[in-house]
């Protein structure tokens, strides 16, 4: 059995034929070529595959793709470009909030959801907000600083607007 779903990813509609059991992560990465969606543990534990669905962070490796049909999906590819990084991405660079970088897209997407809900989080709120992510390089202190820096940047932007 295949079903057709409309996946609205980073503002663009994609009509895709999928099998019912396929995960959102697998379809985004394997079918749509969005390799910023990092499929790793496949159990919703490591957070590397995190994307936003209707603005909420979800682990796309264990969500049925069909359940994301006609909803607003955001991945790291929709955030910034290499020449024009999103303030959260820039803050991760500036604070060295990664080493190998594998887990980074997931951390950045959760940080985006966190900062939208809590624009000025303290360190423990950041740790709690990112508790669904694992960084095997162990750059957690830098990640927390990166999110604090991003919060300042975004706050600044909001003030200037």
């Amino acid at each position: 059995m295949t079903i057709e779903v409309n996946l609205r990813v980073n503002g663009v509609d994609h009509a895709v034929e999928i099998q019912p059991h396929e995960s959102l992560g697998r379809v985004l990465n394997g079918r749509l070529g969005l390799n910023g969606v990092r499929i790793s543990c496949k159990e919703g534990e490591c957070g590397a595959c995190t994307v936003l669905v209707d603005g909420e962070a979800v682990t796309s490796c264990i969500m049925l793709a069909v359940q994301a049909g006609d909803r607003d999906i955001q991945t790291i590819e929709g955030l910034g470009t290499p020449d024009d990084l999103h303030p959260i991405q820039q803050a991760f660079v500036d604070e060295h909030g990664f080493q190998c970088g594998f887990c980074t897209p997931g951390f950045v997407m959760s940080s985006k959801a966190l900062l939208e809900a809590t624009p000025h989080p303290d360190a423990s709120e950041i740790a709690e907000g990112l508790s669904g992510h694992i960084c095997r390089c162990g750059t957690y202190p830098n990640i927390i600083r990166a999110v604090q820096r991003a919060a300042e940047e975004l706050g600044q932007e909001a003030t200037n607007e």
């Binding site: 957070g47 995190t50 909420e56 962070a57 979800v58 959760s110 959801a113 907000g129 508790s131 669904g132």
Partner: peptide, 9 residues
Amino acid sequence: FATPQIRNV
């Protein structure tokens, strides 16, 4: 309960 991402789903 689990993680923020799991709690959303």
